[in-house]
């Protein structure tokens, strides 16, 4: 089975479709909730849409990464690309909200950060799943995935920096965050592309 066929099948699975449906519905609701109206002419939609989108993408990427950490590399690759599709097909919500809100954040940042963060968090999820497998604690995965994300956000808040928190970074461009995420995303891509086909030991 070719990689593209594998990817198409992976994306067409019911869990992915259901999650994508939920994801798009949430984005649509958030956009509508913060859209300008005759009572409040100020359009604040982008700030909510961008933060919701990036945190959901991070959570989905972490989840799939953690779950598929011990699967063959080809499955990890196709799953990773399927998760990236979430980011790509939700772009119009980001663009529409950005266009109407007219924030001072550069458009390139708003477009690229979710893609980079998705890949990076997928990689972090793979690492988390692999680690929990090594310590034979994969049953903790449902708790560890949101826990890790909350921990990263809490650490940023505690230290007063903007390194790991995707929500803050999405609306306040921070090159430290971008640097770390690009590094992790690059490492993930290299590992997925060039790593041994067998994937993690199981």
């Amino acid at each position: 089975m070719s990689f593209l066929e594998q990817f198409e099948r992976r994306l067409g699975r019911s869990d992915m479709i259901q999650l994508l449906t939920l994801f798009l519905v949430v984005l649509a609701l958030v956009t509508l909730a913060r859209w300008a109206n005759p009572l409040s002419r100020v359009n604040e939609a982008w700030f909510s849409v961008s933060q919701t989108r990036v945190i959901l993408l991070a959570l989905i990427a972490l989840g799939y990464g953690g779950v598929y950490a011990l699967r063959p590399r080809s499955v990890q690759r196709s799953t990773g690309l399927a998760v990236l599709m979430f980011a790509l097909v939700s772009t119009p919500f980001e663009v529409a909200a950005y266009a109407a809100s007219y924030p001072s954040v550069p458009l390139s940042w708003a477009l690229l950060l979710p893609l980079v963060d998705t890949v990076a968090f997928y990689g972090i999820g793979l690492g988390l799943g692999w680690f929990l497998g090594r310590v034979r604690s994969r049953s903790l995965l449902p708790l560890a995935i949101p826990g890790l994300l909350i921990g990263m956000i809490a650490l940023d808040i505690r230290l007063g920096v903007n390194l790991l928190n995707p929500m803050t970074a999405s609306v306040n461009p921070a090159w430290q965050h971008a640097g770390i995420m690009v590094a992790i995303a690059s490492l993930t891509t290299v590992l997925l592309a060039l790593g041994p086909e067998s994937g993690a030991s199981r």
């Binding site: 994306l11 067409g12 479709i17 994508l20 449906t21 798009l24 519905v25 649509a28 599709m85 097909v89």
Partner: peptide
């Protein structure tokens, strides 16, 4: 959203 989901 519907069109995207149908296509996929």
């Amino acid at each position: 959203g519907i069109l995207t989901l149908l296509l996929i």
